[in-house]
Nucleic acid binder design. Sequence first.
DNA 1: CCAAGGCCTGAATG
DNA 2: ACATTCAGGCCTT
Length: 280
Amino acid sequence: MVNYKIINVENSINSGQVFLWKKNKEFWNGVNGDDVLSIDKNGNINSYQNFKIDFFRQNDNLEKIIKSISKDKTVKMAVKKFQGLRILRQDPFQCLISFIVSSNSNIPKIKNNLEKISKKFGKKIKYHNQEFFLFPNPKKLAKASINEITSCGVGYRAKFIKEAAKIIDLKEIDFDYLKKCNYQDAKENICQIPGVGGKVADCVLLFSLDKLEAVPLDRWIIRILEKYYLKKFEITTKTITEKQYNILHKKIVNYFGPYAGYSQQFLFKMERENYKKKWL
DNA sequence: CCAAGGCCTGAATG
DNA sequence: ACATTCAGGCCTT
């Protein structure tokens, strides 16, 4: 029996969605854009700014969603084992920069890079007697020099970060507009940003722009598909071109339905757990 | 259209 | 120890 109400805070934070989080005694504390959240083990949120954000997407109808994605034994098992795993609703700009930084990288390094960015460019605040650095706003990063950004250890991604920040700051791409668009339009839009390809785009769409049919296809998901869905999705290649990415994505949405993003999150978590990869 | 190679960096692997 | 490979891609040729 699946309990649709529970929130597993630990699993949700440690599932590759967010990076600027750490645990202090009973509480998970994390930077989310201009805000700092403090979350207890039941998922009750206090925040520095008192912004009311449905961070755990509790307005999603989990019962309907889980029934909808439960197409086979593999997902059913993942859903059962990781009850309470949620897709988080993040600050879009922080999410965008996070996943530009993530390309060709690994979690400890991504985390390190992002900490340096918020420390160097973000505003220092005190909350619950601890120090935090808010995530810098687009203008701040847009004005930063490439050298300053590079000093955060992001390497060749520095210029992508600056350009992305400029585009967002000037509202050439507007997150509020993207939230209203359908998946395809939003994706085409966001892929205009340098450093954003299919995978990064899907991360941003799923984790911050409410596009639940976005399914980030990274190495891990490809590995899972090869392992459990080889025939179903006719996986042939290891290296995925843009076209193959899109074809595969269509097959996945066709199979798992409009909430395919949730299925990805459960499968991903399951496979990572098998390999005991380090999170935060 | 596809394939191959380069790219910063640090952790993991031998 | 030290070298090499790899890591949650993207861009250019």
